[in-house]
């Protein structure tokens, strides 16, 4: 099957005075049609920058982004506009991502107008259809964002992303600004819509429970690189990379009788201004060896469509 999106060795560096911030350092990933993939990692690891380069909100410093085999990363903005409706985004904070002066109707009609749909009735009927899909009704058409609850706002955000029938939807922490009770209903809605519309999702999050609930494949990012990737069930059951292990051991379990072994990483994430020469985790890794500080480990394929970037991977496979 032809991949929907291929990100090939993308780097994004920002200039900040005399320093260079290495936000994304050669990331490669593939998303197939209809697939739901998670990109996880801590704050500042480059998840959001990666998604912004895919959406062309910033241009990558290096690398290629292929959408159905066509490189969209260097395309002039005018030409890229034809692809805009096919790659959409649901933003983190629905309060900030909706124009406070636009009614729901106006917010949702803009993407349709930009697609060249002119008829007022057609636009309105498509909006009402879409609102129904996100469990809102025609009575919300003339509401302003301030007249909606947090959950309702995010539903409008989801409706805006999906109304143009995109092939790929990037979900940038779609539930982190919502409270617990609303969170689950939004996640269930996203799952339901994915089945109905058969779009691919790239979910960016640091919430492992959402990943488990929604995704089939997961990629773990650390300091601008992917350190581990594979099917969610296998990565969660048997994490290989020391960073993934630490990350997964930090998931709280709602059962006080379970005693979990907590793997703690010591120290802080290195600064993305001066990247370490070797493995970026070497200073914090409980299993680090001298070679880890010398050489950057490459992503290696493991059986079962898994990938890990760690020098100790052979030992891991055998163990």
């Amino acid at each position: 099957m032809e991949p929907l999106l291929e990100v090939k060795n993308v780097k994004k560096w920002f200039r900040s005075g005399r320093d260079t911030v290495h936000a994304v350092n050669g990331i490669s990933l593939t998303i197939h049609p209809g697939e739901v993939v998670a990109l996880v990692g801590e704050s500042g690891c480059g998840k959001s920058t990666t998604s912004r380069t895919i959406l062309r909100l910033t241009d990558p410093t290096e690398g290629q982004i292929l959408y159905k085999g066509i490189d969209i990363s260097r395309m002039p903005e005018k030409q890229f506009r034809a692809y805009r409706s096919k790659i959409q985004m649901v933003f983190q904070d629905p309060t900030m991502s909706l124009n406070p002066l636009f009614t729901v109707k106006r917010t949702l009609s803009e993407p349709l107008r930009l697609q060249g749909i002119k008829g007022k009735d057609e636009i309105e009927s498509r909006i009402i259809q879409m609102l129904k899909k996100v469990q809102l009704g025609p009575e919300h058409l003339d509401r302003y964002p301030r007249q909606l609850s947090g959950g309702q706002r995010q539903r409008v955000g989801i409706a805006r992303a999906l109304i143009t029938d995109p092939d790929l939807v990037i979900l940038d922490e779609p539930t982190s600004a919502l409270d617990m009770s609303v969170k689950l209903s939004v996640i269930n809605l996203l799952r339901k819509l994915q089945h109905e519309l058969n779009a691919s999702y790239l979910l960016i999050t640091h919430d492992m429970n959402t990943v488990k609930h929604l995704c089939s494949r997961v990629m773990v990012m650390y300091l601008g690189r992917i350190v581990e990737a594979g099917p969610v069930s296998e990565v969660f059951a048997n994490p290989k990379h020391p960073y993934t292990r630490a990350l997964l051991s930090a998931i709280p379990v709602a059962d006080p009788t379970t005693k979990k072994e907590r793997i703690r990483l010591i120290g802080d994430t290195p600064s993305p201004v001066s990247l370490p020469k070797g493995c970026s985790l070497a200073d914090r890794c409980p299993m680090a060896e001298p070679r880890c500080k010398e050489r950057q480990p490459e992503l290696q394929h493991l059986p079962g469509e898994r990938m890990v970037a760690c020098h100790l991977v052979e030992e891991m496979v055998s163990s």
Binding site: L55, L57, R81, S85, I87, F91, S97, N99, R160, T164
Partner: peptide, 22 residues
């Protein structure tokens, strides 16, 4: 840098229109 400006850009709204209308 408001998210709703990014959202408008993702839809394909032109820069001048984002500035004047949004």
């Amino acid at each position: 840098n408001a998210e709703f400006a990014d959202a408008a850009r993702c839809m394909g709204t032109s820069k001048v229109k984002i500035m004047l209308v949004h």
